[in-house]
Amino acid sequence: MSSDLFYALTGASLFTLGLYALIKHAHILRKILAINVMGSGVFLLLVALAAGGQQAFDPVPHAMVITGIVVAISATALALALMLRLREASGLAVLPDTSPEELSEQLPEAPSDVASKNNGKNA
């Protein structure tokens, strides 16, 4: 197993792990973290695969990764800002239409009135 392939597989695993976390966790902060993990995975993959090419040095993937990181940073910033606003407005940093079970699973401190409020919205 060449190191390139190893990095590539690691990147893919990071992506998958992030995806899992993104789906599983209710709290938005965790989702944002998961997205970042996924992003890192992709970047890793990009660089690793580029290195495995025939050319000794290919600047393009690096340029891509750098661009990607810039994009990821701004996205994360926006996401965090939004999350804070949402928490300010609703008192909880979870997406709407989240089921109460998920809420209680993820946020043991979740006040019951919020759960019932969400419940009511679903109905």
Partner: peptide, 25 residues
Amino acid sequence: GAAMRYLLVSLLGSLCYLLGVALLY
């Protein structure tokens, strides 16, 4: 809430797209 979800969707979609770009490249 809708914006937040939209953002997550958007990011997830673009990341997948980027992964595809990496593979193609």
